[in-house]
Design a protein around this nucleic acid. Sequence first.
DNA 1: GCAAGCACAGGAAACGCTTTCCACGAAACC
DNA 2: GGTTTCGTGGAAAGCGTTTCCTGTGCTTGC
Lengths: 369, 369
Amino acid sequence: MSTPRSSAPGRRPGAASIRDVAHRAGVSIATVSRAVNRIPTVDPELAERVWRAIEEVGYLPNTQARALVSGRSRILGLIVSEITNPFFPELVQEFDNLAVAQGYEVLIGSTNYSPERTEALIRRMLQRNVDGVAVMTFGIEEDLVQKLVEREFPLVFVDAGPDLPNIRVLKVNYAEGIRQAVQHLAALGHRNIAFISGPLRLRSATARRDAFLRSMAELGLAVPVEHLPEGDHTMEGGMGAMEKLIDLGVLPTAVMCSNDMTAIGVLHALYRTTHTVPQEISVVGFDDIHLAQFMLPPLTTVQMSCKDLATAAVEALRAGIEQDHPKAARKEWPIPTSLVVRQSSTYPRGTLPALVELAAGNGPSQRVK
Amino acid sequence: MSTPRSSAPGRRPGAASIRDVAHRAGVSIATVSRAVNRIPTVDPELAERVWRAIEEVGYLPNTQARALVSGRSRILGLIVSEITNPFFPELVQEFDNLAVAQGYEVLIGSTNYSPERTEALIRRMLQRNVDGVAVMTFGIEEDLVQKLVEREFPLVFVDAGPDLPNIRVLKVNYAEGIRQAVQHLAALGHRNIAFISGPLRLRSATARRDAFLRSMAELGLAVPVEHLPEGDHTMEGGMGAMEKLIDLGVLPTAVMCSNDMTAIGVLHALYRTTHTVPQEISVVGFDDIHLAQFMLPPLTTVQMSCKDLATAAVEALRAGIEQDHPKAARKEWPIPTSLVVRQSSTYPRGTLPALVELAAGNGPSQRVK
DNA sequence: GCAAGCACAGGAAACGCTTTCCACGAAACC
DNA sequence: GGTTTCGTGGAAAGCGTTTCCTGTGCTTGC
């Protein structure tokens, strides 16, 4: 009989171990373990006694000990670009909710676009022995996650990733929502539409720009290269890019942006130069972050649902972790996008309908399709 | 000599254990452990050999095993109200950076103001055996964190908390910044200032409102009760509260808000009812979130620095965890606030200076004090 | 030259849990 | 009735690490 140590390094007052429960219920620790893990071979009456004892002593299984022996930490890694970009908290929130509902914890890290940070982040995730990692940075330097790939961690990428058994990819259908947006503007009469891209080293940024160019081409509309400035998916970047467009002398009648934060920067730049939106120029964003509807004017934007992304990411990870998952074999997980029309887009300036709208005091406002 | 097991439950390809390193370096695991932990009694030449072996096999110490034996998980809990409220990601970011720099991991959870969620969150933190918890919800139902208090976890609260040895409190000096804001508005000529509070069950919300009332009283200005609507620190709440003020028939000339998100909602409500800011009505926020400067117009607001808060929170937690911390005895950690003047505040409508300003096209813009 | 002392390395126990293995008794079969 | 089978509980062996204690081989002092 080993003497129960009352002051082991980590013990806190009130923290009960499996031994305390066993003692209280008058059974062995193995029985407690089986009861906790709901192994069916345990006598129901005994299990009941164990559960009562657990309640009484306030027992919580120590996750670290569990992880150590089972080899599964029940922690999911989530890598995002910047937690301060409002798109990501919304994603994190959804991801966290779903993960917790499935009994996982989430280890969040933002790269801030720094390779050193990313590397440190991945090392931390390896040390904490995560069960899988969702890389939701919308384009990452693949060599950085090499260590995760090597060790055969279940991984989820957005847009594109290495074609390996443990890797799943969320395929965002940028084309669909962006085509809707371009057609919406074209239907209003816009011919001269600029596009402020994100940082072009991000795959998602090039994918969005390419979808825009393709949609324009489909309508026979050309886009001069000076109408394709590069932003960086921040408000500051959006402001800078819009200022460049203003400096050209002749404004396009509409501007599409690679994300909503860029669009917010654009609104800001236009406000500072006393251009009115949407009367003088229409602005369209991408993402549909919560804030978009609270901008002045509320932002017309392409919705990419965080909930869809998070759900797909968690499910895809589980598919990689839990071998008997129903969708274990699926490698590509589609994510739809669609246009949400609000008040930052209307007829081009100087056209008749615009004057009518101006008189009426508001632009068109409905959901497309 | 025990045979190295190649397929223990949790082992991944490429994941090396301390035993592999010991074997490779031709030393015992105890020596490896000592080398890794930089215990000075290890022969430098041997330590060098160990480090080389670590490099060669790509060894990363398993955090869970370390935590199990040391009793310290090197995880800090961080409880916030809502991760989707832009104030909190900024706080999370700073907190995370500082914690990681000190060798800690951060377990983030948002309560979403739900007691059930909060309870589950705390249970998870207990299970993961966090070393300490920062409760940054700006007012929490204290019975919910009772379990943490009982078990003598080092805790950090904002504004107020139980007076116990392991508990530290960040004392935000609301009065200072809010007085600056009220005096700024009063100096411009405002006498009729409304205040949209946060949810009054939050201590921070009542503290802000009380600071406002006291500053007004100091100047001999009365505030009718209908000019003190309650919001909920969201944009929606700000909109709703502002709509109530508008429905009163006579607008105040300025509105102060308990936080920036409320102010953004207010701007939105005023936009929808075609009131201009700041010409018709001045709006002042609180927090100075990053977004504040990108609102239209850029928001005058009271700055409460996330960096200050995060730094104090991490240091206070460390003071509670690491017994030899220099500030181990400090119980109260002061957080300053101060006014940032931007363009959402100017002279009251109908006063001469306001007309002058209107003609000039912009309001006053400088930092107070 | 020998005992004492000292550095330093290695063996082994422990952290809290899961899992496997074994023993025990009861039920079922021949 | 004896043997096989099955279900059940208890004991023990790890999981990867740290840490204590022991032991070795050296240096030092008298």
